[in-house]
């Protein structure tokens, strides 16, 4: 068995359920292309390529979490949603998952729809909804942005982990009987800790980009972020 598997491997979910999610993922990505084109201009396109490459890199960096011999890694939905918006962001994560499945043997090709649904679609969507909400509620400061990125990351990772639980309930290949609640609990517990790691990485990255080039942070378009001590940096306005 692959010891380096980071995503759902072949055989874990049955074929029919995997096929249904492949169709769903394809439809969702098609919608993302249509809606994402509104955002994709000469400036965002290379930035989106960079975000995908960066997520690929950071996904390789498994970090230890507190519960014994378990590690975690970035999923990237929150990072992508904040930096390039929800539609293009989901496409960024999907590109990473497709490259990993087709070139690096990570995550079964037949399971691609399941992995894309959990991490690219669900993870990015949940993150973006929280980002949109929190940026309205929290003060428009660097710490407001950091808290937004952190909370959106934690919840998005939890949502993605529970997406897998639903998929396992529909088509898991081992009969857990009443053990599904146990699976849900274990996945949630472990991914809460992974979400904390993801939140720290995402907040650090987003705040760094916001300090260097606030105009390249999609979530800050049409807003200003004031950092203590320095005058407010006007973010370049852009049509959503």
């Amino acid at each position: 068995m692959d010891t380096l598997a980071m995503h759902i491997s072949n055989g874990i979910i049955n074929g029919p359920v995997a096929a249904v999610f492949a169709a769903f993922a394809l439809a969702a990505l098609a919608l993302c292309v249509v809606r994402g084109r509104q955002d994709l201009d000469d400036r965002l396109a290379p930035m989106a390529g960079l975000v995908a490459a960066f997520i690929f890199a950071v996904q390789m960096l498994n970090f230890p979490i507190f519960t014994g011999a378990v590690s975690g890694h970035l999923l990237g939905g929150a990072l992508a949603a904040i930096l390039v918006g929800p539609w293009v962001g989901a496409l960024c994560v999907a590109v990473v998952l497709i490259v990993q499945a087709l070139v690096f043997g990570d995550g079964g090709v037949a399971m691609l729809g399941l992995n894309i649904t959990n991490m690219a679609v669900l993870g990015t969507a949940v993150a973006y909804l929280l980002v949109a909400l929190l940026l309205r509620l929290l003060p428009r400061t660097v710490s407001g942005l950091a808290v937004t990125a952190f909370v959106a990351s934690v919840v998005s990772v939890l949502a993605a982990s529970q997406g897998f639980v639903v998929q396992y309930w529909l088509g898991g290949t081992t009969d857990l009987g009443s053990g599904l609640a146990g699976l849900a609990g274990t996945m949630a517990g472990v991914h809460l800790l992974i979400g904390v790691g993801e939140g720290l990485i995402t907040a650090t990255t987003v705040v760094t980009v916001a300090k260097i080039r606030p105009d390249l942070v999609h979530a800050l378009r049409g807003r200003t972020v004031a950092s203590p001590g320095t005058p407010p940096v006007p973010a370049a306005g852009g049509a959503r």
């Binding site: 010891t3 960079l50 590690s71 897998f164 991914h191």
Partner: peptide
């Protein structure tokens, strides 16, 4: 890109070898 190359090309060697959250579950 240079930061990403550094992370994936060098720092990746210091990543935890334990199974990740999904795999361990």
């Amino acid at each position: 890109l240079l930061v990403a190359l550094l992370l994936a090309g060098v720092v990746s060697n210091f990543a935890s070898a334990h199974p990740d959250g999904l795999d361990s579950t």
